[in-house]
Simulated scan of single mutants.
Amino acid sequence: MKDTFPIYDICAISEFKRDDILISRFAPYLKSHKNLALPHKHTFYHVVLFTEGGGTHEVDFTTFAVKPFQIYFMVPGQVHSWSFEGEVDGYIINFSVPFFQSFLLRPDYLEEFPFFNGTTDHSVIDIPHPLQSQITQLFEAIIHESEINEKAGLDMVKALMLQIFILVSRLSTGSKSQNATSYNYTLLKSFQKLVEKSFSELKLPKDYAEILYITPNHLNAICKDMLGVPAGEVIRNRVILEAKRLLINRDQSVTSIAYGLNFADNSYFTKFFKKHTGLTPEDFRKQTLTHTHHDSTTYR
């Protein structure tokens, strides 16, 4: 395990640096990037469809059993690692944040898809059998377009990717947000964006409610109705997630992490972290790094 926690830019692992995208079948990608089995972050979007293989894939400290026709959508900043068993194959697409921003003149288009909201529970999806062939054909078409270098090839790749995103998003029929009023849904998305931007400075629902020009009770009602948890828990969960992401970097002390997250002192941070995870920051770091080292020795 390296002392410095790796954060990869698209240019560091892409053969298509100029176009901010990497497109590959998964087996050769895995062979070329074995170091990516260890925990790391990306500054880009990461889409993986497994078509064969087993083992585990961990995203933001949640472990998933790898199985065929399981698709992963990861956003910049998420921590992930994998420990595979046997031969693994599928498809992978890495693309930078600006890649879609000018397309269709909709810079926020990706935010409409629930699997790109950074919530782990929404980002791992099993593709049902009736859809598997169609999704596979779309990935194959993307591979083909990346190889033939035809006119408007990148636009065709984007169009094919959007077909995949739309088809997969239609599987999320259980989302409460689909039945919500557009006003409340817009408020929820605004709240989530604010939390992502300000979770280390603003820790109370009333702070966000004030910015959104609504009451704390209204904000809580929206979160409970659409997410199943109160607004305060949304904020706390984001703080805990960031603390976990920082703790697996051994170069950062627990004290520096506490101050970076705007806790008054290390003691308060430790109490907060233990209350919501059951472990002290030091115990979480020790447990995670031990688990990571074991996984890296079983990688093949």
Results as ranks from 00 to 15, higher is better:
1 M>Y: 05
4 T>F: 12
10 I>F: 12
10 I>L: 15
14 S>C: 08
17 K>P: 07
23 I>Y: 01
28 P>W: 05
40 H>A: 06
54 G>M: 06
56 T>P: 00
56 T>V: 12
66 V>A: 10
69 F>I: 00
72 Y>A: 01
73 F>D: 04
80 H>F: 13
81 S>Y: 03
81 S>E: 09
90 G>Y: 07
91 Y>K: 07
96 S>R: 08
99 F>V: 01
100 F>C: 04
101 Q>D: 10
105 L>D: 15
112 E>L: 06
112 E>M: 06
119 T>S: 04
122 H>Y: 12
137 Q>K: 15
144 H>Q: 13
145 E>P: 00
151 K>P: 05
154 L>D: 02
158 K>I: 03
159 A>D: 04
160 L>G: 02
161 M>C: 14
165 F>S: 04
166 I>L: 09
168 V>D: 07
169 S>E: 14
176 K>L: 11
182 S>V: 15
187 L>F: 03
196 E>D: 14
201 E>V: 10
205 P>Q: 13
214 I>K: 03
217 N>W: 06
218 H>E: 14
221 A>Y: 13
222 I>F: 06
224 K>W: 02
227 L>M: 11
232 G>C: 00
236 R>C: 01
236 R>G: 00
239 V>N: 01
246 L>K: 15
255 T>K: 13
263 F>H: 06
273 F>T: 03
281 P>L: 06
282 E>F: 04
285 R>C: 05
288 T>W: 10
294 H>R: 13
295 D>Q: 14
296 S>Q: 12
